[in-house]
Simulated scan of single mutants.
Amino acid sequence: MTRFTLALAASLGLAACLPAGADAVPSEYLAIEWTLVSINGQPFTATGKIDLSTPGSIAGQGPCNRFSGSYDGTLPEFRPGAIAATRMACPDLAAESAMLAALAEMTRAEVTGPVTLLLTGAKGGSMEFARPMN
């Protein structure tokens, strides 16, 4: 066998071991946590963060609770599945509910500038996030 054939066989063998949806996440999405700035063009005054750095996974922090789940699609395609959240109460629980409800409606995730992540939905909704500054 030639080296090329061996390398190809090894590559195919490794690719077969990866879970479905384990495509590489484009580097522009790899900010550890993006900070929520607005929902549907309205400022989000509470604290909200999202992390898309693991292929197929969503994680984050709302004003009160941490959440996690999965999404289908290869970014920028983005179809969230069920989102699980801890159940702590706080004064900003309504803002958190709005955040999670909006997230469930999103269908696309795009980095639109050096520091902006824009999630958009099929019904016209949007969520704008900013990259944390170091």
Rank of each mutant, 00 (worst) to 15 (best):
A95T: 05
A101S: 14
S27W: 09
R87A: 12
G41S: 09
A46N: 04
R87D: 12
R3S: 08
A9T: 10
L118E: 02
A95D: 15
T86R: 01
G81T: 03
A31H: 11
D92V: 09
I58V: 14
L36R: 08
F4T: 09
L100Y: 06
A59D: 05
L103A: 07
C64T: 08
P80H: 09
P80C: 08
K123E: 14
T120I: 07
G125C: 09
A89E: 07
M106W: 07
S126R: 01
D23C: 05
M133N: 11
G81M: 02
R108Q: 13
L6R: 11
R79N: 09
G125P: 08
E128P: 02
R131M: 04
A9G: 11
S68C: 06
N134I: 14
G81H: 01
A95Y: 10
G48Y: 06
A89I: 13
R131D: 00
W34T: 00
T112G: 00
R79V: 13
K49D: 03
P19M: 02
F129Q: 00
K49I: 03
A98M: 08
A59I: 07
S11W: 01
S38V: 09
R108M: 12
D92T: 13
N40C: 04
A85P: 05
L30G: 07
R3N: 07
G121A: 11
G60K: 14
A15L: 15
T54S: 09
G13P: 04
T2I: 09
I39V: 13
A7L: 10
A7W: 01
I83V: 15
S70Q: 14
L75H: 04
G73R: 06
G60R: 14
A84E: 10
A46Q: 06
A16H: 03
I32T: 10
E105F: 00
P26R: 07
Y29F: 11
A104G: 15
G125Y: 02
L8C: 09
P114L: 06
M106F: 03
M99P: 06
N40D: 13
M106Q: 09
Y29E: 02
T74R: 08
